[in-house]
Amino acid sequence: MADSKILSEQDKKEIARYLGYGKVKPDPETESLIDIVAEEAISAVEFRRIYISAPVLDCADDASELNAADEPDALGKLEILGKRISSTGLARNLTGCDRCYIIAASLGAECDRLMARYASASMAKAVVLQAVCTQLLETRLNELERELADLPENSGKIFRPRFSPGYGDLDIALQGWILKVLEAPKKIGLSLTQSKMLTPSKSVTAFLGVARADGCPEKGTVFESGCSSCDKKDCAMRQEN
């Protein structure tokens, strides 16, 4: 989807999945609607992202910290850029990583405007746009990962699945810290509302672990990300790894 206005077959499958089709092939009317909406969305939205590379300190070895009264849970203590983060989910995801990228990305305000416009003109287009933009954001983030993978410092490294605040036990309030560290409001126009929602709405903050090639504890380890870290087991969109 990078430089083309045409969706790949894989993109279309994912969009249909977000729309609740599961493995069912959408009817021709819906397929055509997806194409129309995707074309408008791709030309309207502007993907903006910012990231920094940061060392990951595993504090589990730090006995004095472990015994601290205010941090009773010994597992899942990390320190990134001076910030103590307590999350077994993220700690597991970053096992074997001495570094990670902190990423913030957004499809921008234009995406929300288009959504509002569709919502008043055609809800069919609005629900399709919702799915198209979710996929568009995902695709752009995957492209960003490939771009990072090509950097010389990452040669021979393995990326963990992206892990966002709100996944598993990783506090959603960390979004605010990420935005501040990255100066995301200034640099890409991404901010938080009072109730801690990202605006513009099609946006992501995430950690991307960079592991040593031998950093995987054992072959075949499945790292939690996205759906598998979520407690809502009855979700219609759920995908198992």
Partner: peptide, 11 residues
């Protein structure tokens, strides 16, 4: 029937 169809029918 899926959500986009439901909405198209509604419109």
């Amino acid at each position: 029937v899926f959500l986009p169809q439901l909405m198209m029918s509604a419109e």
